[in-house]
C-alpha cells in the first residue's frame, strides 16, 4: 500500500465517522419520539407551552411541521456549516457564544499543554523505569502510574484547589482569565497577561497531566522492555556503545511508535478528563459549556458540544494516523 492510498483510506474513514456522529447526535436528540428539541423545551417550560402564539413561533423556528426527512436535511446542513441554533437558556446563538468566549481555544489550550507535558513526563519516566527494571525507582514509578488509573480526576482537581489555591493561595481556584481582562483600559500589559493566563492554566493543566501521564509511563516502559530484549540491543552492547546511546537511539526509536499511536487513541479519554477538569475549575471551554447546559437541559447546546467534542477527537485520531503513516516505513510496504 502506498502512502497516498493509505491517506485516502483514512480520509474516507474519517468522513464516515463524522457522518456517523452527526446521525447519532440526531437520533439522541430528535430521533426518539417526544424528545425533539421543541417537545423537550415545552415540557421544561410549561408556562410557554400554554401560550399558543409562542408555541407556533417555536414551531416555526424548530421546523416541527416539516417531515422527518426535511428536518434531518436542514439539521445536516446546520451541522456541516456549524450553525447550532440558539440556546434554550438565554436565546443566545450557540456559535457566537463559542467564538466570543473562545471556548474551543480554551479547551485546546488545556488539552494540548497537559497532553504534551504528560507525554514528556511519561516517556522520560518510562525509559528510566525500563532501564532500571525491578529497582526501587522502577517499582515506585510503576506504582505511581498505576495509581493514576484509580484517582478520580475531579477529586485530584478539588484537592489541588484545597492545597494550592485555598490553602497556600499560589494560584486562582478557578476561571480562565480575570474579569479585568475584558474591561477596556483595565487590561494589563501583554507580558503580565501571559503570566496571569499561565497562573490560571496551571492547576487545570496539572490536574489533567496527573490524570494522563500514568498511561504513557506504563506504555513506554512496556514497549521499551520489549525493545531492550531484542537481538540488536545485544549487538549494540557488544559493540561497546554507551548505555545512553543504546537506550535512546536504539531502543526508544523503535519503542516510540506505539507511543505515538496510543497518544491519539488516548485522546478520547483525555478529553473525558478535560470535561471534568473544566467543570471543577470553571475553565471556560467546551466541557464546561456542556456541564452548564446539562444542568438546565439545554438540548441545542448539548447537541453542539457533543458534535464539536467528537470532531476534536476524530481530528486528533486522523492526525495521529497520518503521523503514523509518515513515521512508520512499514506502512508503505505492507
Amino acid at each position: 500500500m502506498t502512502l497516498r492510498s493509505f491517506l485516502l483510506r483514512r480520509i474516507l474513514y474519517t468522513v464516515l465517522l463524522i457522518f456517523l456522529v452527526i446521525i447519532v447526535n440526531w437520533l439522541i436528540f430528535e430521533g426518539i419520539p417526544g424528545q425533539s428539541g421543541a417537545a423537550a423545551f415545552l415540557t421544561n417550560n410549561p408556562r410557554i407551552a400554554q401560550n399558543k402564539q409562542a408555541v407556533a413561533n417555536l414551531c416555526a423556528l424548530w421546523k416541527c411541521n416539516q417531515s422527518r426527512t426535511d428536518q434531518f436535511l436542514s439539521y445536516l446542513h446546520n451541522m456541516l456549516t456549524f450553525q447550532f441554533g440558539v440556546s434554550f437558556q438565554n436565546g443566545q446563538s450557540i456559535s457566537t457564544n463559542i467564538i466570543q468566549q473562545q471556548r474551543l481555544t480554551n479547551t485546546l489550550l488545556l488539552l494540548g499543554s497537559s497532553t504534551i507535558i504528560a507525554i514528556i513526563i511519561g516517556v522520560v519516566l518510562g525509559i528510566i523505569a525500563s532501564a532500571r527494571r525491578d529497582s526501587l525507582v522502577d517499582k515506585a514509578t510503576v506504582s505511581a502510574s498505576l495509581s493514576t488509573f484509580a484517582l478520580p480526576t475531579f477529586w485530584i482537581g478539588e484537592v489541588l484547589i484545597l492545597v494550592l489555591a485555598i490553602g497556600l493561595q499560589w494560584f486562582p481556584s478557578g476561571g480562565t482569565v480575570p474579569v479585568t481582562f475584558s474591561i477596556p483600559g483595565q487590561a494589563p500589559p501583554l507580558l503580565n497577561q501571559i503570566i496571569i493566563r499561565i497562573q490560571y492554566l496551571f492547576l487545570p493543566a496539572l490536574t489533567l497531566t496527573l490524570f494522563t501521564y500514568g498511561g504513557f509511563v506504563l506504555l513506554t516502559r512496556a514497549t521499551m522492555l520489549e525493545a531492550l530484549n531484542e537481538d540488536y540491543i545485544v549487538t549494540a552492547k557488544a559493540k561497546g556503545l554507551s548505555r545512553r546511546t543504546i537506550l535512546f537511539h536504539h531502543a526508544f526509536k523503535n519503542a516510540s511508535l506505539p507511543v505515538v499511536t496510543s497518544s491519539a487513541l488516548a485522546f478520547g479519554g483525555i478529553l473525558a478528563g478535560a470535561i471534568i477538569t473544566e467543570t471543577v475549575f470553571a475553565w471556560n471551554g467546551l466541557g464546561f459549556y456542556l456541564f452548564q447546559a446539562v444542568q438546565v437541559k439545554d438540548f441545542p447546546v448539548m447537541q453542539a458540544m457533543f458534535y464539536l467534542i467528537s470532531l476534536t477527537v476524530i481530528a486528533a485520531n486522523f492526525i495521529a494516523d497520518v503521523l503514523y503513516g509518515i513515521i512508520d516505513p512499514r506502512i508503505r510496504y505492507e
Binding site: L17, A272, I276
Partner: peptide, 8 residues
C-alpha cells in the same frame, strides 16, 4: 473506540 464516551 473513536466516539468520545464521557460526553455521550
Amino acid at each position: 473506540l473513536t466516539i468520545p464516551f464521557l460526553p455521550l
